[in-house]
């Protein structure tokens, strides 16, 4: 019997085909984990294996998924943004306050009614972009630490969410917005908000992989000084990344408001850590320079699957936290293992 040791897994000992398969598995490890988890849940949890549940998982992934995109971009660029959760909540609150018809809602009605769709979306994106630009100013111009700057934004923006409606909630968004959460198309019965999230993943995965901006972003995250010396406008790209992350968080907030038909002062609480978990599970390195959005999408789906499974089982909610914590730890361990296997492949 031959034991498989790191030395036996050297590049020379592998055929090109085995090597390609190994590379493929490593690149898509989180998708394999997701498939395994879904299979296990389907076999062991009563009522889990049905289209409606899978549709729920995708729907529940929409907001977290969109939020994770912006966070991933910044982490890949070698920074981070702790404010995305509060930014999403603020965008949701601003949209809800303007257009909701009860609570703190100001009941603005646009004519024709469908105008509320682009106008509210533009407002949500603008709110996010402004906060993203503020973060960028402190980080890029004043050379302050991104962790501290965005932590401060996380706190003051949440304060604003609380203060604007004076602690009240704004509920009852118009049908011209709510249809996104209600209408479902195709065989999977997936609501439109989930399709928006999927579209965002496709677009930003393309931007990250196929455009100079995306490639520069990854290079900056890998080595900022080398990128600067290579003539890449590092400051400009990081500034744009912060603004993008803010605007994407604004989009997440817009979707969140539509999904819950309004906003409360504590809307989205806890999503930041879930977004971080999804990003890490999805294989984005916290060191920067490494990561793919397809992995992040799988990470988000994995988290939502676990949440749904726990909802369907008679497990106390605290188990969710324990499982998520262990999962993040496992993801980091796997990442280390992947790195070590890759080094031996090359």
């Amino acid at each position: 019997m031959t034991a498989i040791t790191p030395t036996t897994l050297s590049a020379t000992s592998l055929s090109p085909r085995t090597r390609a398969v190994t590379e493929f598995v490593l690149d898509n490890l989180v998708w394999f984990i997701l498939a395994t988890v879904l299979t296990v849940f389907s076999l062991t949890i009563p009522q889990f294996f049905q289209i409606g549940i899978f549709s729920n998982i995708i729907e529940q992934s929409a907001v977290l998924g969109v939020m994770s995109i912006g966070l991933s971009l910044l982490i890949i660029a070698g920074h981070l943004d702790l404010s995305v959760e509060s930014v999403a909540a603020l965008s949701a609150m601003v949209v809800a306050m303007l257009f909701a018809n009860s609570g703190a809602g100001l009941k603005y009605v646009l004519t024709p009614e469908w105008l509320v769709f682009p106008v509210s979306l533009a407002i949500a994106l603008a709110v996010g972009a402004v906060i993203g630009a503020t973060n960028a100013f402190f980080v890029v111009r004043l050379k302050m630490n991104a962790f501290i700057v965005t932590l401060a934004s996380f706190i003051w923006v949440r304060g604003l969410v609380q203060k604007l409606p004076d602690g009240r909630s704004a509920q009852g968004l118009p049908d011209a917005l709510r249809f996104l959460a209600i209408e479902r198309y195709n065989v999977l019965y997936i609501p439109l908000i989930a399709w928006i999230a999927i579209l965002c993943f496709v677009v930003f995965a393309f931007i990250l992989k196929r455009t100079p901006f995306g490639r520069h972003l990854t290079l900056i995250g890998g080595n900022k000084i080398a990128s600067f010396r290579a003539g890449i406008a590092t400051d400009r790209i990081i500034t744009v990344s912060f603004i993008l992350a803010g605007a994407i968080a604004g989009l997440a907030g817009w979707l969140l408001a539509i999904r819950t038909s309004g906003a409360t002062a504590n809307l989205g609480t806890g999503m930041l850590f879930q977004a971080f978990a999804a990003v890490v599970i999805g294989g984005v390195s916290l060191q920067g320079g490494v990561g793919r959005l397809s992995g992040v999408f799988a990470g988000v789906l994995l988290l939502s699957s676990i949440h749904t499974a726990i909802n369907l089982m008679s497990l106390p909610a605290s188990y969710t936290q324990i499982i998520l914590g262990l999962l993040v730890l496992a993801a980091v361990l796997l990442d280390t293992l992947k790195l070590s296997i890759r080094q031996r492949l090359t």
Binding site: G167, R168, T264, T269
Partner: peptide, 8 residues
């Protein structure tokens, strides 16, 4: 907390 309307 001030995150719900009753408390506010």
């Amino acid at each position: 907390t001030l995150l719900d309307e009753f408390q506010t």
